[in-house]
Amino acid sequence: MAKLPRTHFPQAEDKPLRKAVRRLRWFVQAFSSQISELSADTGIEFEIDRSKLRAVFLDWVKTFEGQKPSDAEAKANYITFAAGAMLRELVDGKPLKAVRLPENVNRSNPAYFWPEGYAYLAFCMNVRAAVIAQELDLETDIAPEFENIRTWWSFKENACEDSATAIGFFELFVGDNPNWSAPQVFSAAHAHDNAKRMFQRNMERLGNT
């Protein structure tokens, strides 16, 4: 089973994570923590452009607030879209650069095939997993595609050409059914269907324990 790179997010100062992530200071600290731990795991040396990272955050908040639903159920189902939109802004903003890789790395490993994209995806998936665990008390999935290099070829090529597709690929990597027709537009019905499947997978896990 695919595993996410580990990370330890900063304390949220008595605020729920879903609110903490919308604060610039927390976002920058959390992203930096993810990159530090990913660097320790992979041996890749990264550089973070904090000016670009702040711009990414502001663009993401604008998207988040612009499409945030008012319905309580839809808000819960909005988590995955919001994380996918975060991935899109990171791909667009390019706040990270891999400046040195270890010698003789295996380029069929997604972490070395596209180090920056892998870091962006890992961060967004970890944020999503943490928010869902706190808000819904559910475990999240990582699809086999997360380790499939052919999927990563497609992800990199498409996301670099049209960053909106990063949201669809994000759904694919977390085991959801992607919305390829308009991934950049939140669909409550689409999100509801994916949330139902996530809930069912959690029920199946409980039944197997």
Rank of each mutant, 00 (worst) to 15 (best):
Met1Asn: 11
Met1Phe: 00
Ala2Lys: 06
Lys3Asp: 07
Leu4His: 02
Leu4Arg: 04
Arg6Phe: 12
His8Ile: 11
Pro10Gln: 08
Ala12Ile: 04
Glu13Gln: 14
Lys15Gly: 00
Leu17Ala: 01
Leu17Arg: 06
Arg18Met: 11
Lys19Ile: 07
Lys19His: 13
Arg23Asn: 15
Arg25Trp: 12
Val28Ile: 15
Gln29Gly: 00
Ala30Glu: 07
Phe31Ser: 00
Phe31Gly: 02
Gln34Phe: 04
Ile35Ala: 04
Ser36Asp: 15
Glu37Cys: 10
Glu37Ala: 07
Leu38Ala: 02
Ser39Phe: 07
Ser39Asn: 03
Thr42Asp: 00
Thr42Gly: 06
Glu45Leu: 12
Phe46Gln: 02
Glu47Leu: 15
Ile48Ser: 05
Asp49Ala: 15
Leu53Lys: 03
Ala55Gly: 10
Asp59Phe: 09
Trp60Gln: 05
Trp60Met: 13
Phe64Arg: 05
Glu65Asn: 12
Gly66Val: 03
Gln67Arg: 09
Lys68Glu: 09
Lys68Tyr: 10
Lys68Gln: 12
Pro69Arg: 04
Ser70Thr: 14
Ser70His: 13
Ala72Trp: 12
Ala72Arg: 13
Glu73Cys: 11
Glu73His: 13
Glu73Met: 14
Lys75Leu: 15
Ala76Val: 11
Asn77Met: 10
Thr80Asp: 14
Ala83Thr: 03
Ala85Asp: 06
Leu90Tyr: 08
Val91Arg: 07
Lys94Glu: 14
Lys94Val: 11
Leu96Asn: 02
Lys97Ala: 14
Ala98Trp: 01
Ala98Thr: 01
Val99Leu: 06
Pro102Gly: 08
Asn104Glu: 12
Asn104Gly: 03
Asn104Val: 02
Val105Asn: 01
Asn109Tyr: 02
Pro110Ala: 05
Ala111Leu: 05
Ala111His: 01
Pro115Ser: 07
Gly117Arg: 03
Gly117Pro: 04
Tyr118Ala: 02
Ala119Cys: 04
Met125Pro: 02
Asn126Glu: 10
Val127Arg: 04
Arg128Lys: 13
Ala129Tyr: 08
Ala129Pro: 01
Ala130Ile: 00
Val131Cys: 03
Gln134Tyr: 07
Leu136Thr: 02
Asp137Ile: 08
Glu139Asp: 14
Glu139Ile: 06
Thr140Phe: 07
Asp141Arg: 11
Ile142Asn: 09
Glu145Asp: 13
Glu145Val: 05
Glu145Phe: 08
Glu145Trp: 07
Phe146Tyr: 14
Glu147Met: 10
Asn148Leu: 04
Asn148Glu: 06
Ile149Asp: 01
Trp152Met: 05
Ser154Ile: 08
Phe155Glu: 01
Asn158Lys: 14
Asn158Glu: 15
Ala159Ile: 05
Glu161Pro: 01
Ser163Thr: 12
Thr165His: 10
Phe170Ala: 00
Phe170Lys: 01
Glu171Pro: 00
Leu172Asn: 01
Leu172Lys: 04
Gly175Pro: 11
Asp176Glu: 15
Asn179Ile: 05
Ala182Phe: 11
Pro183Ala: 10
Gln184Met: 08
Gln184Ser: 13
Gln184Thr: 05
Gln184Trp: 05
Phe186Met: 12
Ala189Ser: 14
His190Gly: 10
Ala191Ser: 14
Asp193Ala: 13
Asp193Gly: 05
Asn194Thr: 03
Asn194Gln: 08
Asn194His: 06
Ala195Leu: 07
Ala195Asn: 06
Phe199Asp: 10
Gln200Arg: 13
Gln200Ser: 08
Asn202Arg: 04
Arg205Cys: 07
Arg205Leu: 14
Leu206Tyr: 10
